[in-house]
Design a protein around this nucleic acid. Sequence first.
DNA 1: GGGCATTTTGTGCAAGCGGTCAAAAAGTCG
DNA 2: CGACTTTTTGACCGCTTGCACAAAATGCCC
Lengths: 199, 199
Amino acid sequence: MARTGRPRAFDKDEALERALLLFWSRGYGETSVQDLVDALALERGSLYGAFGDKRQFYLAAVQLYWDTYERELITALEAGPVLPALREVLTHPARAQEYASDVGVPQGCMIGNTTAELVPHDAEAREIVARSHARFTQIVADALRRAQATNEVTQAATPEAQAQLLLFTVQGLSLVSRAGLDTSAALAAVDALIDALRA
Amino acid sequence: MARTGRPRAFDKDEALERALLLFWSRGYGETSVQDLVDALALERGSLYGAFGDKRQFYLAAVQLYWDTYERELITALEAGPVLPALREVLTHPARAQEYASDVGVPQGCMIGNTTAELVPHDAEAREIVARSHARFTQIVADALRRAQATNEVTQAATPEAQAQLLLFTVQGLSLVSRAGLDTSAALAAVDALIDALRA
DNA sequence: GGGCATTTTGTGCAAGCGGTCAAAAAGTCG
DNA sequence: CGACTTTTTGACCGCTTGCACAAAATGCCC
């Protein structure tokens, strides 16, 4: 319990959130410690003191990203029919693309970005990403299982396989959207998938 | 026409192929010019003389990657039933995952990797990636159109929407596979999608 | 109010980066 | 054989990076 000593002059959570936005929009490698120092308006030493090195800082931001996303995902799926909610979840990246012209609005899914950039050579990042994937498929499969029981969703495949397919789709859509997306084509593709899931 | 002068001591195409493997497995940022120099067994100056700077070198490698992939894609789809061929195309990244323990065997789709790493801040990379996406959907949509006509594939959605969905899936699968994949789960997901496309 | 624990501040640093360049080497052609 | 053109070679450069550290500042607790 560290109780005494000079108190921290900034809000650690708020700093992490702001770092999340930076890391999200620029990626790990393209965000320098100097960028963080400038954006967070604190000195180098304070940053290292509070968050450890750059890698730990990034991983903490990714974890925050996922925790937030997971909470939203659960909320979206817990009530009402599942397919409209899933449609909303899937099209989210496509719609976010519209705001991409605004400066500072991140692109793509941060889990996906981390997968591409860090996972191949960072075991800890791989763990975070793998855990997020597992959580996503578990949450979605649970929802699909309920929806199969009420005959909203086809039983042609297992909920697990359907959930895995949805993971691939949302990750792929989010990635492809970074290259500039024909929004209507993307929506048509999502609709085709949602229709195929209907009982 | 440069006809005189000291002849190049290495095979340019072969060097590009070898650079492709390096870039593919490590990405752009994690591959240093020194890495290339070591792997290609040529001196810095020769590399710059032959390929321009690192960025041009990488983009040339990506273009070579896509040209090769496109040729294979067309070959796979031009004869026989379309759905088995598509299944093969989709599961390719999942199966490639098995060899990932071998050193130097690249992971994921290089177009996807480029999308994540370069596209957000490199207009030329964005063009190459966008063109590859367009070519993919066009080739696959053509095949699906034929398959819809012979009643192999459902007409519940347009061939374009189906092709777009397949692009998302293959990109997502290829990306997710980098984080370590449950192969059987991935195959079940692909089968669910292929089944959903059946008439 | 004085000692203590902690954060802040700003400088400094070694390493690695992408890229350049001049001299030497190696062919071709008149 | 000698002039010319191109590639090779390897040293070199300026810059940025992530990170460490010492001194000053600040608030808590006895």
